[in-house]
Amino acid sequence: MTNTPQQTSLLQARNLSMAFGGLDVFKDISLDIFEHQIVALIGPNGAGKTTLINCITGVYKPTEGNIAFQGKPISGLRPHQICRAGIGRTYQIPRPFMNMTVLQNLQVCAKPGEKDFRRLLDLAGLWEKRHRLAKALTFQERRLLELSRALSVNPKLLLLDETIAGLNPSETKDMMTILKRIHSEFKVTILWVEHVMSAIMETAHHIFCLHQGALIAEGSPADIANNDKVIEAYLGEEYKFQEK
């Protein structure tokens, strides 16, 4: 994919730190997410990726630093306020509302009066199953439901937490197609935490690499693949050979 140079900053994090008790999860992170990009966040387990997402969505209050969304500060707001400001999210293990139907899952999140869920459910391939309970869906379907639920709040920025983890190759392929469609059709910016490098290299415009609570590299997929620090911390030596 080509990197379209869009320079409007959608989300700005400045000197963000998060600590639980005396334990620093990450320290002094500053990053910008620009509009209309697919931004990937990679890093080894425990690097602080999910915690960063939780800080952005307001689940945790960062111990230091500010986050601004579309120029307005959002740190300190409640998660539902941040969601209404235009940030949607999904979870690593899908968490749809299990005892509600597929359609109800979207209705409850969308703005009152919103009626057209067909487009969202067609995208996820769940329109035919709209009256089923979410707990009757397969793992992948739950994930798709969660994705369309996140879109139903009409977000500007979508935070995805390991959306293709645990899917088989054909499911992964479908999911990638859907993600690309979400990006192009719904005009959302995506911040995507992921471990599957092939998927990231194919899709992302910009990559951040987090390691032991610090941002060690950022850049285009090609830059990241050849960055020595990233290779040492995360990708491994073999990756370099593969790419060449």
């Binding site: 969505t57 307001g58 689940v59 409640r78 998660p79 539902h80 969601c83 209404r84 949607g88 999210r89 979870y91 968490r95 749809p96 509302f97 299990m98 005892n99 509600m100 109800q104 409850v108 999140c109 639920r149 996140a150 709040v153």
Partner: peptide, 14 residues
């Protein structure tokens, strides 16, 4: 119902 099924997800969904 959303509060019953998953209160954290409900909060994050506005």
């Amino acid at each position: 119902f959303a509060v019953r099924d998953d209160i954290d997800a409900a909060e994050s969904m506005g």
